Amino acid sequence: MPTEAQIEDFIQAAARDTGISTPPITWVNGPRSSVGPRGDIRLRRSSLEREDDAHFCSMHELAHVVLGHTRLLRRARDTALFALPLVLAYRVILPGILLLGLSLPLTLLLGCLLFLAGLHLGGRLGFRPAETAADSWAAQHGGPLTLELAQILAQRRSPLTRALGAIIGSHAAWPTRASLTRKAGVR
């Protein structure tokens, strides 16, 4: 089991090799790691239970910093991707009631389905490419997502988290992410 200091050294070495200064690193007890608004890295302590998890997690989050995927930029994209399906749903609900004379329940159902479809499309087009790029960068810098690790990480997700992930579509399923990295020739 690696220590926090060892993983921080691992991140410093990768940052130095990439030509950037090491971003601030914080260890959190939550279920996920992330990149903060100013490019700071927040790593989940549970990743320290396995060396491959700690390496993947740290390099994946550093990749978001190196590739410019900071939370501030992601928040702007999130807002746009959320607003678009909401506006489209509204554009169906109001005309459906006023112009087409559809019943309120049917119109609301159509609006909700359109909203979810737009949210999924936004997640697939807006987030997934950034996540795939971060996975590939991580693998190239000593933190590959192996199929074994992907299966372990998939088992840790709750049924609700899996369902929301399928609806929003921002991240491919863990085993799919591992195979995408492998197919790209990154081991």
Rank of each mutant, 00 (worst) to 15 (best):
G101E: 11
D17H: 03
E131N: 05
T3V: 07
G165Q: 07
V87A: 15
A63V: 04
L73P: 00
V66W: 04
A134V: 08
K183A: 13
R162L: 11
A184Q: 07
V92I: 15
R128V: 02
P37A: 12
L110G: 15
G185W: 08
Q140N: 07
L100M: 11
Q6C: 01
H171S: 11
V87I: 14
A134C: 14
I97T: 11
L104S: 00
L100C: 02
R182G: 00
H120Q: 08
G165N: 10
G143V: 04
C112Q: 08
Q140I: 00
R38M: 12
H55M: 12
S158K: 04
H55W: 09
Q140L: 11
A76H: 02
R156T: 03
L153T: 08
L153M: 14
A13Y: 00
H64L: 08
A150G: 11
I97L: 15
G39W: 01
I20L: 11
T22S: 10
D135F: 09
I20E: 00
L81P: 00
P144A: 02
L84M: 13
G39F: 00
A117D: 02
G101R: 13
R177M: 09
M59I: 02
L106H: 08
F127H: 03
E49R: 14
E61D: 10
R187M: 08
A63S: 14
I97K: 08
L145M: 15
A134P: 09
Q6S: 14
L62V: 10
E148L: 07
L145P: 10
T18M: 04
W174N: 06
L180S: 05
A54G: 03
G111K: 05
P85W: 03
A83L: 15
H69T: 01
P144W: 02
L108Y: 09
M59T: 02
R77G: 12
Y90V: 12
G19H: 05
S21D: 14
L48M: 07
A14W: 00
L153D: 01
P175R: 04
G143L: 06
R77T: 11
P31D: 12
P129C: 07
A166C: 02
T22A: 11
R156E: 15
V186C: 13
A80V: 13
H120R: 14
V65W: 05
T70G: 06
A178K: 06
A89C: 05
T26Q: 13
A5R: 13
I168N: 03
L109F: 14
D135W: 06
R162D: 03
L116H: 09
T79S: 07
L109I: 12
A15S: 15
L72A: 13
C57E: 14
L147G: 05
M59G: 01
G122S: 09
V65M: 04
R44N: 09
R50T: 05
G143Y: 03
Q6I: 03
S103H: 06
L160Q: 08
H120I: 01
A89M: 11
T18D: 01
R156K: 15
A173H: 08
S47W: 04
A138W: 06
A76K: 07
G68F: 05
I7M: 13
F56E: 08
G165Y: 03
S136N: 07
L62M: 12
V35E: 06
A150T: 09
A138Q: 05
A5C: 01
A14Y: 00
L180W: 02
P159A: 02
F115E: 03
F82H: 06
A172C: 01
